[in-house]
Write a protein that binds this DNA or RNA. Structure first.
Length: 617
RNA sequence: GGUCCAGUAGCUCAGCUGGAUAGAGCAACAGACUUCUAAUCUGUAGGUCCCAGGUUCGAAUCCUGGCUGGAUCACCA
């Protein structure tokens, strides 16, 4: 809307002049005229009825007459439908807008803020490979980071890796028992999958052990003693699983002992733990590479899980927290409707919250970020509400700048993903599949035959990932989404490849244009623009506003919709209007110029979504 | 039970701080390639915006109550 301030100014003047009423020109709300009506910009006059003491139609007509008379260089025409004043702007106005857009370096970018914003995303556990849920997280986090950077912030992309605890110990135990010294290298299995296999192996062995045990005398006695009346033994043992793990299981004992050894710094435990995690990280890096993302810093729970205790002490002194008789520490958030929440156990050890408080402080010390964005699934909404409230009460310098980019779970058409039942979509498989599908479709179409094998693979990668990323990012983050694998590789309609295709068409035109050796600039000889051209300029003019919304709301989905609509307008233009076959050189030059501006907005916009553009497809 | 989130076409989703006759894509059907890349374009068909009240010139949008689905409410992470 930045280009519309002259119109706002004129309207403000008109209202002052005719009705003697003051409205600051920034306050004049203009909207885009719906396509079924004549005009481009609409001013809604209903709110003026009180001031003007006239019927809406009369007000709109009066303002329209005034504008047309006083601002001929901008306002070409107008029409009134009920209380809607639809304004048609002059061609020269739109051409001037295009001129301004083309002259703006980094069009749509925000001014440098000299503020750091830290974006945390991905944040996996190290006992299994990344899956579809992580993919949504990673794409959202990456895009959000790109958008903040373009908005003028200094962005630090980071994660918190859960590299410790009972889960990784399970993998370690299984590897010791069944691994025979195998490694990812010796087996050719990618590191994260390799370690994940041992986690699964442990769970299987544990399940067998547990089932075996259930027919033993000890088990029968426990069932007799603790089972509820009429309860089936199967149901009882299902519920008893955790207790069995903790008290009777041989495997459980081994895993727990390993955890205790690790915590006490036992050398062999630490060595194995490091080895397995290194394998996993190597695998993760490969997946991040495949997805085209990377990080600036990493935080590991093994380093941070003891942090936060100082903050608890400090909070006690400030009376933010209180200590119960059993010496556990709590915060009272009843006033915020969040109840009471434990921040330190009675034995003095940390809970999750303690650690997060400490990690946030450490990050501030390390990076000086005043804003922190956490990309974490919506099941942790409550946790982050509490965390942010605590940081505010502790008066942390970044307390007001914390944001939880909460996103909904990803369901499959068959229902929820369930890792226990093996119903998960693996991230590596997914990437491979979408690229394979892109290759398949390109071959069927016979495109890209003149490209080298390397160029061809690069193309398939860009198109396949473009489809996948767009499919996920177009959905509003906070909504739960259904991931249909078949639809995710669609390349027609509202998809990534559709937008890439608009860009590719422009590149093709530009290549031919260069051969024609005509000056590629605006000519004053071309002054009567086509509707399709005007629509494109109008759409280009909305880019900064879309970026502002995406940045302020930490939401790329609106940007994704916008880029689709721009691409759609371009495809329509391409179909309706001859570009290189235009009637004269001035028209050719104008259309190529316009196309180039469309291409650069499409490319930048997609880049902010983390999607690359191919030059041909 | 308390709290939070979601509910829009057969399916997947838009609809921004309230604006005109609620929009796309997919799927279905009918068309357009001797012409800048048809991964495109054009058309047809498809709706109780979960329900009921309220606020006002005007409500899919805001408020209240209900219904449905999900999440969460551990000295778990």
């Amino acid at each position: 809307m930045i280009f519309l301030s002259p119109i706002q100014q004129k309207l403000s003047d008109a209202i002052k002049h005719i009705y003697d009423h003051d409205i600051a020109h920034e306050e004049i709300a203009l909207s885009i005229t719906r396509s079924e009506f004549e005009g481009e910009i609409t001013f809604i006059v209903f709110p003026l009825t009180r001031v003007a003491k006239q019927k809406p139609e009369v007000i709109a007509q009066t303002l329209g007459d005034y504008l047309k008379k006083e601002s001929q260089e901008i306002v070409a025409d107008f029409n009134v439908v009920k209380g809607f004043l639809n304004i048609s702007l002059t061609d020269s106005f739109w051409i001037d807008v295009l001129q301004q857009i083309s002259k703006t370096p980094d069009y749509g970018a925000g001014n440098p803020k000299n503020k750091k914003v830290l974006v945390e995303f991905s944040s996996p556990n190290t006992n299994k490979p990344l899956h579809l849920g992580h993919v949504r997280n990673i794409l959202l986090g990456w895009s959000c980071a790109q958008i903040q950077e373009y908005a003028g912030y200094d962005v630090i992309k980071t994660q918190i890796i859960n590299d410790r605890g009972i889960a990784i110990c399970k993998s370690m135990v299984a590897w010791r028992l069944f691994g025979n010294g195998d490694t990812p290298e010796s087996t050719g299995v990618k590191g994260d999958h390799f370690v994940g296999q041992y986690y699964v192996r442990f769970e299987q062995a544990f399940k067998d052990e547990y089932e075996n045990w259930q027919s033993k005398d000890t088990a029968l006695e426990i069932f007799k003693k603790h089972g509820k009346e009429g309860q089936e033994s199967a149901a009882f043992f299902k519920a008893y699983k955790n207790q069995y793990f903790n008290e009777y299981s041989e495997l459980g004992k081994q895993a727990q002992e390993l955890l205790i050894k690790w915590e006490s710094g036992d050398e062999s435990a630490i060595e194995l733990w490091k080895q397995m995690n290194d394998w996993v990280y190597e695998g993760f890096e490969a997946t991040y590479n495949a997805l085209g993302v990377h990080f600036d810093s990493y935080y590991y729970e093994s380093d941070t899980y003891l942090l936060g205790k100082d903050a608890i002490e400090e909070g006690l002194n400030k009376n933010v927290f209180y200590r119960k008789d059993d010496s556990s520490v709590w915060i009272d958030l009843e006033a915020e409707k969040l109840d009471h929440k434990l921040v330190l156990r009675s034995n003095g050890t940390s809970v999750y919250m303690t650690q997060d408080i400490g990690t946030a402080q450490k990050r501030y010390e390390d990076h000086g970020a005043e804003k922190m964005v956490y990309v974490v699934a919506d099941e942790q909404d409550y946790h982050f509400k509490v965390l942010f409230e605590i940081m505010k009460k502790l008066k942390a310098p970044f307390g007001e700048g914390m944001y939880h980019l909460s996103y909904g779970m990803v369901d499959l058409p068959t229902g929820r993903m369930k890792s226990r039942e093996g119903k998960v979509v693996d991230a590596d498989d997914l990437v491979e599949e979408v690229i394979g599908e892109a290759a398949h479709q390109a071959k069927e179409r016979g495109e890209a035959e003149e490209l080298s094998p390397a160029e061809r693979n690069e193309l398939y990668r860009k198109v396949g990932l473009g489809a996948l990323k767009y499919f996920i990012l177009k959905v509003n983050p906070k909504k739960r989404m259904t991931f249909n694998p078949a639809e995710s590789v669609d390349m027609q309609g509202q998809t990534g490849p559709y937008i890439q295709n608009a860009y590719v068409r422009i590149q093709s035109i530009v290549r031919r244009w260069k051969d024609m050796k005509i000056d590629a600039k605006l000519s004053s000889d071309y002054d009567a623009i086509e509707p399709a051209e005007r629509i494109l300029i109008q759409s280009l003019s909305n880019f900064p506003e879309e970026l502002r919304l995406a940045s302020e709301n930490y939401d790329p989905s609106g940007l994704a919709s916008y880029l689709y609509s721009l691409a759609k307008s371009y495809h329509k233009f391409y179909h309706d209007v001859r570009i290189l076959g235009a009637e004269d050189d001035a028209a050719k030059a104008f259309r190529v110029f316009l196309s180039q501006n469309v291409a650069s907005v499409l490319k930048k916009g997609m880049e902010l979504l983390g999607i690359e553009m191919p030059e041909r497809m």
